[in-house]
């Protein structure tokens, strides 16, 4: 019964996108505009590129950089957020600076980061990490601060050991907000990944799209844009699963929003 209901929901969600793609396919079939090639041509390019050599040359480095950058952002963001929450005075002093750095568009910092870290993948990773760290850090800090005082009081009165306090009280207590921060960081990370590749890299999906555009290989360009859309969507869906697992202790009605 539940499988059937799930299937019905899936169909209900899928019919519109599927219909739009079909319309696109047939409407564009006779297109002679060089800017909007027929979907069939884009699809051919898509298969040729992304199931071909470009996968290894462009997709693998892009995704590796994204994964590394986000991993750095996660470790540094949660770690620093935790420390700043544990030492409230430091948190108070640091907060305006953090808000300032968060407010700088990470794309504007790209030139400086590439000077510092070189134009190789280190530069890309640094740029992604720099852009993605702030939402995670600020949400961790805020999440721990907003844990109810009664919870902290109980932990104190039972003399909970510091590492248990961190792993069993503070981080889980802040988790609803940390997951929100990660979701924001994920989106920022993808933008910076593409942006930094367009800016200086010699590989990556962003680089591929720019080169395709500059050489008027517009079907290739569209195939790259399409791939980025698919990747962004897949990351969001995949992260939704992780998020539900991280917040599995919450009543169903309040978890898994958005």
């Amino acid at each position: 019964m539940r499988v059937l209901a799930g299937l019905r929901l899936l169909l209900w969600e899928l019919w519109l996108p599927v219909a739009l793609v079909v319309v696109w396919w047939f409407v564009s079939a006779s297109s002679t505009s060089p800017y909007f090639p027929p979907l069939s041509r884009i699809w051919e390019a898509f298969v040729e590129n992304w199931f071909g050599p470009s996968f290894r040359v462009d997709v693998v480095p892009s995704m590796t950089n994204l994964a590394l950058g986000l991993a750095f952002a996660l470790v540094v963001g949660v770690g620093a957020g935790l420390l700043l929450a544990l030492f409230p005075l430091a948190g108070e002093i640091a907060e305006p600076f953090l808000q300032f750095f968060r407010a700088i568009p990470a794309l504007a910092v790209l030139p400086a980061l590439f000077i510092l870290f070189g134009t190789g993948s280190t530069g890309n990773v640094a740029a992604i990490a720099f852009g993605a760290v702030w939402p995670i850090l600020l949400n961790t800090l805020d999440g721990i601060r907003s844990i109810h005082p009664s919870v902290r009081l109980v932990a104190r009165s039972y003399r909970i050991r510091p590492y248990l306090l961190v792993t069993n009280v503070l981080l889980p207590g802040a988790m609803p907000q940390i997951t929100v921060g990660i979701r924001t960081s994920l989106a920022i990370g993808v933008v910076i990944m593409v942006g930094s590749e367009m800016y200086v890299s010699t590989a990556g999906i962003g680089h591929f799209v720019v080169v395709a555009q500059q050489t008027f290989a517009l079907a290739d360009m569209w195939s790259g844009i399409l791939l980025l859309g698919v990747i962004g969507y897949a990351l969001n869906v995949g992260y939704g699963v992780i998020e539900r697992w991280l917040l599995r202790w919450q009543p169903r009605s309040t978890s898994g929003s958005k």
Binding site: S150, V151, L153, V154, Y158, P172, G173, M175, W249, Q250
Partner: peptide, 17 residues
């Protein structure tokens, strides 16, 4: 010494069974 307080809803950790 152990303390039991009034607002049980906030002294149990919601994320722990």
């Amino acid at each position: 010494l152990a303390l039991v307080s009034q607002d049980y809803g906030r002294t149990l950790m919601p994320w722990l069974r």
